[in-house]
């Protein structure tokens, strides 16, 4: 690996870090507050900067200046470690997501993906499972009953939904015949009868729905936000966190939302593929930029969907959550992967 490719890799990492964390998560926080405002017929924060754009940065500045309180008898090391796990898992999942096709800059072919790994989806599932450690360690190390309950709920919930998430992905893997995310996106750039784009959402509607529901549960968003359930658990696992450590959990939640939106877009909604764009005969550079833009638009729309859902439906009760996870989602995912197998064996 020569120096220039290392520099390119670093640049990609910086762009993703900046894009996901600073622009993405901060703007998602702002979008959540403003969209919820509009839904409730009020305006939301609109004072700091034009349309309130600088509000999240003001919040971060405030959180940085706050005192960092660690409860007495809390395990200080784990208490500090938990938010770091949360945020780094949320960010590192983004490493395998292709945010565009190959782009040609200064005579170099640059793949718009940080880590082009063969085990793509497995890496994804492994990292989302590590994410639960952030939450449950935070709950356990806080020396607080409610935090502990939040952490326990989180681990139970993640175990239940991880299964159906993985099973719902098997259909996609079987159709595409690969674990590499860039190959999966390439597979989706074809068409049915030259009209409908061959996105996996049309091939795997059941898989899409189960995956979407499971990713709501994975990101601890309503209707599955039991780990932080404010009315019952005060704030759940982050009750005892103050200052920027709390801020990290908060950012991690939104970074997770963005990451799982990006994963859903990549696996089911055609990734960076904009239908029929290749027939226009655009220059490769313009085409690549348009593809990046398409990817961004899809992710933003899905993040908005996450936000609107949060302000629409109430939280599930804990037993309902478990029943849906084990008795509904798991059978549906298994049936989906059986149907896919039968169709592929006999009809293709």
């Amino acid at each position: 690996m020569d120096l220039i490719s290392i520099l390119i890799l670093l640049a990609k990492i910086l762009i993703i870090m900046f894009g996901v964390l600073v622009l993405g998560a901060a703007m998602a926080v702002l979008a959540e507050r403003r969209v919820s405002g509009f839904i409730q017929e009020r305006l939301g924060p609109n004072r700091v900067g034009p349309c309130g754009i600088l509000q999240p940065f003001a919040d971060v500045a405030k959180l940085m200046m706050k005192e960092d309180i660690v409860p007495s008898k809390a395990n200080r090391f784990i208490h500090d470690l938990a938010p770091i796990i949360s945020i780094s898992v949320a960010l590192s999942t983004f490493a395998i997501i292709p945010f565009g096709n190959t782009i040609e800059l200064f005579g170099r072919q640059i793949k718009l993906i940080i880590a082009d790994v063969d085990i793509g989806i497995l890496y994804l599932l492994a990292l989302t499972s590590i994410g639960v450690y952030g939450v449950s360690l935070a709950g356990w190390s806080s020396n607080n009953k409610y935090s502990l309950l939040g952490g326990l709920r989180s681990s139970a919930q993640l175990i239940s939904y991880e299964l159906s998430m993985g099973l719902s992905l098997i259909g996609v893997i079987m159709i595409c015949g690969t674990l590499r995310l860039d190959q999966i996106v390439l597979h989706q750039t074809e068409y049915f009868w030259g009209v409908i784009p061959k996105w996996n959402i049309f091939l795997q509607p059941l898989g899409f729905i189960t995956f979407l529901i499971a990713s709501f549960a994975e990101t601890n968003r309503l209707p599955f936000d039991l780990p932080e359930a404010e009315p019952e658990l005060v704030g759940g696992y982050h009750t005892e966190y103050t200052g920027m450590k709390f801020g990290l959990f908060f950012l991690a939640e939104y970074a997770n939302v963005i990451t799982s939106s990006a994963v859903t877009v990549t696996l089911f909604l055609g990734g960076w593929h904009l239908p029929f764009i290749e027939h226009l005969g655009l220059s490769p550079l313009v085409l690549s930029l348009l593809q990046i833009l398409t990817f961004l638009t899809k992710v933003i729309l899905l993040v908005l969907f996450f936000i609107i859902v949060r302000w629409t439906i109430p939280r599930f009760r804990y037993d309902q959550l478990m029943r849906i996870g084990w008795k509904v989602m798991l059978p549906i995912a298994i049936v989906n992967f059986l149907i896919t197998g039968i169709v592929m064996l006999f009809l293709l």
């Binding site: 509009f38 017929e41 305006l43 609107i308 859902v309 629409t312 439906i313």
Partner: peptide, 21 residues
């Protein structure tokens, strides 16, 4: 699912109504 879609329709419609602020 249809009930959730109904709810989503209401919230999205609500987003474009005038605010009271």
């Amino acid at each position: 699912i249809p009930e959730i879609l109904k709810g989503l329709r209401i919230t999205i419609r609500q987003m474009f109504r005038p605010t009271f602020t």
